[in-house]
Structure formats: C-alpha cells, structure tokens
C-alpha cells in the first residue's frame, strides 16, 4: 500500500461512454494483484472529502489503467482530467482474487465493465477457460478482443439480444454449466471423469450485486468455488472507517467484513446476503 502522485498518461473514450484512464504509477503499478483497487483523489472535485475507488484494469511498471463510465459526481469530474495532469492515488488496496486452485479450470463471469476487474486475473491465470460477459446492450460489452487475445473463450449475453445470447449472463452460464455437468461437451470417456471435470470449475466474478449473488448461489448449489468481487461505497479505503462492511458468515452467525480490506473479493460461501 503506497500513496503516490501519479500523472495522466492517456485518457480517452474507450467504447461508447466508457473511458480509459492510464496513469503513471511506478510505485503502485508493479504491486497490483488481480482484483485489487486504487483509491483516487479526483482533481477539481473540491467539495468532495472522499476519494473514489476504482478496480485496476491493467497494471505494470509502465503504469496502471482504469476503465470507467460516468455514474455520479466523482466520475463526471474525472472525465475532465487531461494528459499530464497529476492524480493522487492510494493503492494497491484490498484482497483480490486468489490464483485458481491446482487442477482447477477457471470460469470468468462479468456484468458490464466489471470485466475490467477480471482482466489481470485472466492474464495471470496459468490455465485459460471460458469467460461469460453480460451487458444491457452490445455497447456495454467491452474488451472481448482483449480477453480472446489472452486465450479465453468469450461467451456474450445482452439484455436486448443486440450481441450474443439474449438474456442475463447468468442464463448463459446456467446453460453452459448444465452442459458441463451432463458431460455433453466432455472429451472424457467415463462418467466419473466428466464429473471430475465439472467439479474442477472455479468461478471468478465481478459485476452488479444481483449478478454476483446469482453467480454465488449457482456455485454453492453445485458445490463449486466462486470468488466474487463486491462493490460497496467506501470512505477511507484502508479498513479504518468501517463504511463498506458486508456480513460474513461465522461458525456462530456472522461478523462484519470490510470490502476495502478483507475484500473486495470474497468466497461466495462466506457472504451472508441481505435482502
């Protein structure tokens, strides 16, 4: 965890209203692990006392980038930063995705630009699998080429059917999981091996809370491991203020866990969802 005065290397429209912001971050960039985030002091947002957390899309010694769209005052102000402008960062923050377990076959599930938070994981996982991307329309499905270039098979679902399968990404996932479970696509010979193939699936997901919950519920019902990147409003970003807490199951009930420190990535079986 470092605090760094970074500088804007590149800031441009990426696709539709989505923007790519690349920052020089020689201290923070090389430290970023998949699923971690940076806490950004937005320039010229003088009335705001809080930083804004952003998942890291790509990161290396040359810098780190984030993918965002305008959802509020902070992101609206962020659209005005110019090349060369200083931007103060704290990061990398939080507990990100674990590497897939031995012999596991990774599956990525993302809603909208949630897949930005999965990119580093996709790049660093030794085994590439299938990635499910959902969005409202084709314009909300991003980075397909980039994931394919890493060796992932990308399957798309859109609410309006303008790209890929029509419907939620979880419907596409369901269909595929059912195929895997029944062994339709299995290359293996015996039923036991098919089952083993299915049980080797490990899910990594980022997107809206309803999608994460749906992914987690499916994984738990089928005995699979799922890692969910949770999004909550944050204040401090370092685990001090206890704003971004979610309920984590314990032996006797539940406890608060901090999305900024204990998460944002949690094992689906840990999360006690609130209605």
């Amino acid at each position: 965890m470092k605090q760094e005065n970074s500088c804007v290397l590149e800031h441009r429209l990426y696709q539709g209203d989505y923007r790519l912001l690349k920052l020089s971050a020689p201290l923070i960039g090389p430290l970023v692990q998949p699923g971690q985030f940076v806490h950004v002091k937005i320039p010229r947002l003088e009335q705001a006392v809080l930083r804004r957390p952003f998942s890291v899309f790509k990161a290396d010694a040359s810098g780190l980038s984030i993918l965002y769209k305008t959802v509020g005052k902070g992101t609206a102000a962020l659209t005005t930063v110019a090349d060369g402008e200083p931007v103060n960062l704290i990061g990398p923050l939080g507990t990100g995705f674990p590497t897939a377990g031995n012999g596991k076959t990774p599956v990525l599930v993302a809603g909208g630009y949630g897949n930005a938070a999965l990119y580093l994981q996709a790049a660093r996982l030794p085994v590439k699998g299938v990635a499910f991307f959902g969005g409202r329309t084709s314009g909300d499905v991003l980075c397909v080429d980039e994931f394919e270039a890493l060796g992932w098979e990308v399957r798309i679902a859109t609410d309006d059917g303008s790209l890929g399968r029509k419907g939620f990404v979880t419907a596409a996932l369901d269909e595929w999981l059912a195929e895997q479970e029944s062994g339709v696509r299995s290359q293996g010979a015996g039923g036991g091996e098919q089952n083993e193939t299915f049980q080797s699936l490990e899910l990594f997901a980022c997107g809206p809370n309803a999608m994460l919950r749906a992914v987690g519920d499916r994984a738990l019902a089928k005995g699979l491991t799922a890692w969910l990147s949770m999004d909550r409003n944050m204040a401090c970003g370092v685990g001090a203020c206890l704003t971004c807490v979610i309920k984590r199951k314990t032996a006797g009930g539940w406890e608060w866990a901090r999305c900024c420190k204990d998460g944002p990535v949690f094992n689906a079986e840990e999360i006690l969802w609130e209605d």
Binding site: Q47, V49, N233, C241, L242, T243, V245, I246, W256
Partner: peptide, 23 residues
C-alpha cells in the same frame, strides 16, 4: 459491539455524514 446497518456514511458538500454506530 456490532454497530449500525449499512449504508453508514454519505458524502455531502464539504463534508460527510457518518452513522457507523461504534462497532
């Protein structure tokens, strides 16, 4: 002590509200 339910903070002009509830 468990503290309050979420949301626990909210940013306002030149400040923020908090009701963490002393967990």
């Amino acid at each position: 002590h468990v503290g309050n339910a979420t949301p626990r903070t909210f940013e306002t002009a030149g400040g923020m509200l908090n009701a963490i509830g002393l967990p």
